[in-house]
Design a protein around this nucleic acid. Structure first.
Lengths: 203, 203
DNA sequence: AACAAAACTGGAACGTGTTCCCAATTATGC
DNA sequence: GCATAATTGGGAACACGTTCCAGTTTTGTT
C-alpha cells in the first residue's frame, strides 16, 4: 500500500513524445489555472501546446481524461512531498486534519485549477478508471500516511486503516465539490472536515 | 428540521403550465431511465414532452437544472415515504443502514436513471443552488429520521445529528458516484457504506 | 369584445467536444 | 540509404447544449 507507481514519469514513448505530452499537460494547467473547467478548451490546449487537435486526442482521448490525468500528476506530487516530511500532530486525527488543511491551502491558492480538476474527476465515467485509480490511491496514501505519524517505520498499514482513509477521502471529495461549485465557503468546508475527522477518528 | 417544503406540488403557474412542467419531467425520467445522462438530450426531451425547445429552456434554464430538479422530486418523494413508516432496526446505525439499503435498492433498479441524476448533481454549480438545496435537505432529513427510530416524537433532532447526517450523506454521495461511474460494484458500495456507518455511528 | 402582455412554436444559428480524412513528416526495419 | 509504417498537422464536419428571433396563440384586463 505504498505510493502509486503509475506511468507518471513516463516510461512510454520517444523523447519527442514525452516532450509533447508535457507541453499538453502544461498548457492544460495554465488554461485551467486562469479560467477553470470551461477555459480548458481542446482547441485552445492544442494551440497552446503547439500540437494538432488530432494529436491531442491521440494522447488524451477526451477532455475528461486530460484533466483527470493532470489531477493524478498533481496528487502524486503531493503524496510524494507528503512522504518526505514528518506530519505534525499528536494524534491521527490531528495529523489528518493538518494534512487536509495543507492540501486545502494549496487548492485555495488556485481555485480555478481546482475547480477544473475536481469537476472532471466527478464527471469521469468508467473509461477513465485507470486515471481515477491513480488519484484514489494517492489520496488514500496521503491519509494513511498522516494517520501513522509520518514515521515510515511506524507500524503496518492495516485494511482497517485503508477503510478509514477511504471514508475520510469520500467526505473530503464531497466537501471539495461543494466548495468548488460555490455551494459552501472555505471556512464551512474546513469546519465540516474537522467534524468528520473527529467523528471518524475519535482520538 | 422537517421535510423540505419546496415547490414540488407546484403552486406556481396555470394548469396548462403545471401540465407542461409535468410532461417535461416525465419525458426527462423516461429518457434518463432508458439511456442515462447522454440520452437526456434537450431536443429529445422537448419533442417527447411536446413543447418547443425554447419553452423547455424557459422552464429549466439548463440540462443540469432539469436533471437536478428531477432528482429533487425523487428525493422528496423518497423522504415523504420514509416518514410514513417505522424504520426497522434497534440502533441508529442499523436503521440508517436499513434506509441506505432501501434507497440503494431503488437506485439499482434504475441504474441509468440514477447515473443521469447523480452526474448532473455532481456537475451542478452555484447557479443550481436552490435545486441542490432541496436534494441536500431531503437527504439529511432521511438520515436523521432514520437515526431517530422513525417515531416522530422521539426526541429533538440536534445540530450534532445534522452534522452526522451530513457526513454520512457525503460518504453516500461519493460511493454513489463510484458505483454510477462503474468504478465499484453494488456489493462493494454496500460494504463501504456499512463500514462508514459503523465508524461514524458507533452503536 | 377589443386590446395588450405574456407565453409558446418552429427553426436558424453559434460554440465547443469529438471524429474523420489525407497530405506531410518522422521513425523503423532491411 | 531506402522502402514502409507510424505519427503528426491542418482542417472540415458532426453532435448536442444553448441562444435568439419572428410569428402565433393564450392569458389577462378593461
Amino acid at each position: 500500500m505504498t505510493i502509486a507507481n503509475s506511468s507518471t514519469s513516463d516510461d512510454l514513448g520517444s523523447a519527442a513524445q514525452r516532450e509533447r505530452r508535457k507541453r499538453i499537460l502544461d498548457a492544460t494547467y495554465e488554461l485551467a489555472r486562469s479560467g477553470g473547467f470551461d477555459a480548458v478548451q481542446m482547441r485552445a490546449v492544442a494551440e497552446q501546446a503547439d500540437v494538432a487537435l488530432g494529436t491531442l486526442y491521440r494522447y488524451f482521448p477526451s477532455k475528461i481524461h486530460l484533466l483527470v490525468s493532470a489531477l493524478g500528476r498533481q496528487f502524486e506530487d503531493a503524496a510524494g512531498r507528503m512522504h518526505e516530511k514528518e506530519i505534525p500532530g499528536d494524534t491521527p486525527g490531528d495529523r489528518v486534519l493538518w494534512v487536509l488543511k495543507w492540501m486545502a491551502r494549496g487548492m485555495q491558492g488556485d481555485p480555478k485549477l481546482t475547480e477544473a480538476l475536481t469537476r472532471a474527476f466527478m464527471f469521469a465515467d468508467s473509461s477513465v478508471a485507470a486515471e481515477i485509480h491513480v488519484v484514489g490511491m494517492a489520496m488514500t496514501s496521503i491519509v494513511t500516511h498522516a494517520m501513522h505519524g509520518g514515521t515510515p517505520e511506524d507500524g503496518e498499514i492495516t485494511d482497517e486503516d485503508v477503510a478509514i482513509a477511504r471514508v475520510i477521502g469520500d467526505v473530503w471529495l464531497s466537501a471539495l465539490v461543494a466548495w468548488v461549485t460555490g455551494r459552501s465557503t472555505a471556512a464551512e468546508t474546513a469546519a465540516h472536515m474537522e467534524k468528520a475527522v473527529h467523528l471518524i477518528l475519535r482520538d
